[in-house]
């Protein structure tokens, strides 16, 4: 029962975040904006459309969206919502989570390169580089959680409501901040990537799917929402662990945390110049190492 509820809640989170982002942006810009469920209607429309495939592509191009979505779904099944229990859980599943998402990434890179388009190659090359540089941040983030909670699987890390502890609170809030940053990079949001840009030369994630349409495009959209929801749920869990560790708190927190922060950042600042992106992402990895070190010092009970 808890498992079903858990999975449902993550799906709800995944579906709600893009809506919140759109509404936040509209409100901040003083526009009426699109309705909350516009992204769902768009995908619904895509699901009913017919498809065009490029003659350059191979069978890989047609299978890729299925692998992309499949990998995202499996990754989602590792994530608990606060004290609920996910479907799959074993020692070290944090690694499995990261590498399942890496599978999603490489397959969409292949699909982009399969079209032989220079624009899509551009996106693929950037995605590959940024993916490589964000990986250490992710792993060190997990290591921080493992060090502090004493477990190596998501379910166990977030299983117990721990009594209030200043050290834990500090580390958990920092980790939450780290995962929020990672969410920005992994789901291709400002300041790393701008999904609304109209210029292919500056796109990353969007330009990789230029040749997809119809049902394939819908699958890719859904997979991206799920990926985004996974990361924001980890961040929300980390925050919830410090105050109110319940699913009815963590779910809205995940939706609002990512939705509002992405919405606000996208309304108030522009994207990085592309050359600055590597610095930005390496900084996140450095931040992760720093947070780990802080966690290590606090674990040693050094007075600071």
């Amino acid at each position: 029962m808890a498992i079903v509820l858990n999975t449902l809640l993550i799906i709800i989170t995944a579906l709600a975040i893009p809506g919140v982002i759109n509404r936040t942006r509209a409100v901040l810009a003083g526009r009426q904006g699109m309705p909350f469920t516009q992204h769902l209607r768009n995908v619904n429309l895509l699901l009913r459309k017919s498809t065009v495939y490029s003659t350059t592509t191979t069978a890989l191009f047609r299978i890729a969206p299925a692998i992309y979505l499949g990998a995202a779904i499996v990754a989602m099944l590792f994530i608990p919502v606060a004290d609920l229990y996910p479907l799959i859980s074993f020692e070290g599943d944090v690694i499995c989570f990261a590498y399942t998402l890496a599978l999603a990434r490489i397959i969409i890179i292949f699909a982009a390169m399969d079209t032989g388009s220079s624009f899509e190659g551009m996106g693929a090359a950037r995605e590959a580089l940024y993916g490589a540089l964000i990986e250490p941040a992710l792993m060190i983030g997990f290591a921080t959680l493992a060090l502090f909670c004493g477990y190596t699987s998501f379910a166990e890390i977030f299983e117990h409501r721990q009594s209030f502890n200043l050290h834990l609170t500090i580390v958990m809030l920092l980790t939450a901040f780290l995962f929020l940053k990672i969410t920005f990079v992994e789901s291709g949001r400002v300041p790393v990537d701008d999904p609304r840009t109209h210029l292919e030369l500056t796109m990353i994630h969007e330009v990789m799917c230029l040749d997809y349409c119809g049902i394939d495009m819908a699958l890719i959209h859904i997979a991206s929402w799920i990926k985004c929801a996974c990361f924001s749920m980890i961040a929300a869990n980390a925050i919830a662990a410090t105050c109110c560790f319940n699913w009815w708190f963590a779910t809205p927190l995940a939706i609002l945390l990512t939705g509002l922060s992405v919405g606000i950042v996208e309304s108030t600042q522009g994207r990085n110049k592309l050359v600055r992106n590597t610095t930005f992402i390496v900084t996140i990895s450095a931040l992760a190492a720093l947070i780990f070190f802080i966690g290590y010092l606090l674990k040693l009970d050094i007075n600071i």
């Binding site: 459309k49 017919s50 065009v52 003659t55 350059t56 969206p65 032989g116 040749d211 394939d216 699958l219």
Partner: peptide, 17 residues
């Protein structure tokens, strides 16, 4: 996906430039 696509037209064309 393949089943859903069966009833729709699948066109071929050059890569979008």
């Amino acid at each position: 996906k393949s089943r859903a696509q069966r009833s729709r037209t699948i066109a071929q064309g050059p890569t979008w430039g």
